[in-house]
Simulated scan of single mutants.
Amino acid sequence: MDKYGVGQDPYCYDGTNVFRNLLEIRDDAILQEAERELTTIAADGIPFSLPPYDFDYLKSLHRQLFRDLYPWAGEIRAIDISKGDTRFCHCDRIEPEAKKLFAQLVRADWYTGLERDELIVAAAEFYGDLNVLHPFRDGNGRAQRILFEHLIINCGYEISWAGLDRDEWIRANIAAYYCDYDPMVAVFRQCIGAPLTE
């Protein structure tokens, strides 16, 4: 069983839980290190963009982050996955559910004009709902965090994930899966900073 509980994963080399990758790395620890390094470099090269922030934009961010490592970068996963007791969106429903979520974001004008406290709540709820989709085979969190950096900056606020406790982050995501957004609101209150100066 791989880390997402799907048995022999077609995204992995046979008999392993190591993702098939463009560098042909067969050791999971080495692959994870390569992934950290390559996505850090890639993230630094992704420029801020103005809206629209839609599902295609999220797929583009994922592609930019992982294109040097995975042939499926930016592509919607073709299998169902879960982590522990958390089952993510059925792969056939990802596209229509994503369109619904991003349509809500468009109707909310990408949260521009919200005061900080309102923005924190709106962003936390949207993050939690979007995370349930988990549209990619891996790397969902990294792509989503860049999307939310752009979203928050576009609203005129600083955002930083630095100092975020990993266990708190995981608990917030699990709680949001069950529509308890309070822990995620607490996370976003910590991460969304002061208004940006001109």
Rank of each mutant, 00 (worst) to 15 (best):
V187K: 05
Q144A: 13
D56P: 09
Y4C: 07
I120C: 01
E115Y: 03
R137G: 05
I152E: 01
C179Q: 07
R67P: 08
D117H: 09
D182K: 14
F126A: 06
V6M: 06
E149R: 14
S82K: 15
D138V: 09
E24D: 15
Q144S: 13
H90M: 04
L151Y: 05
E125C: 13
V185F: 00
W169D: 09
L101N: 03
S82L: 03
I79F: 02
I41E: 15
V121R: 15
H134G: 06
I152H: 01
I94D: 09
N21A: 01
I30V: 04
G139Q: 08
L119V: 04
P135F: 05
E118R: 10
R63Y: 14
D167N: 12
G5C: 08
L101C: 02
L151M: 08
Q8A: 11
R67Q: 15
N173I: 08
F55V: 09
F136P: 10
P10K: 01
L101P: 02
P195M: 03
A162R: 12
K100V: 14
V121L: 06
L196W: 03
Q8M: 11
G163K: 00
R77I: 12
V106K: 11
P52F: 09
N131E: 07
W161T: 13
D27P: 04
A194L: 04
D68W: 10
M1I: 02
T40N: 12
F19A: 02
T197F: 03
R142T: 03
A73S: 14
I170K: 11
A172N: 05
I146K: 14
E168M: 02
L119G: 07
A176S: 14
P135Q: 08
I41T: 14
F66I: 06
E75F: 03
K100D: 11
D56L: 13
R63T: 09
G128E: 10
D2G: 06
G7E: 04
Q190W: 00
D129K: 14
G15W: 04
Y11K: 07
I25Q: 02
R77D: 11
P52K: 11
V106S: 06
R63P: 05
R107L: 07
P51R: 09
E75R: 13
Y53P: 12
Q104D: 13
A162Q: 12
L23K: 02
F48P: 08
D14P: 13
P96F: 05
T197Y: 06
Y70H: 11
E35M: 15
I170P: 01
M184R: 00
L196Y: 07
A78H: 02
N140D: 02
E75H: 10
K3E: 07
E37N: 07
A124K: 09
I46P: 06
H90V: 12
P71C: 01
D27F: 00
A34Q: 15
H150P: 10
D54E: 07
H62R: 12
I46R: 06
D54N: 15
I46C: 08
A108M: 13
F55P: 11
L58R: 05
K3D: 07
Y181S: 00
R87C: 14
I81P: 00
D129L: 06
Y4W: 13
A122E: 04
Y57R: 15
L196H: 04
F136L: 10
N140M: 01
E168N: 03
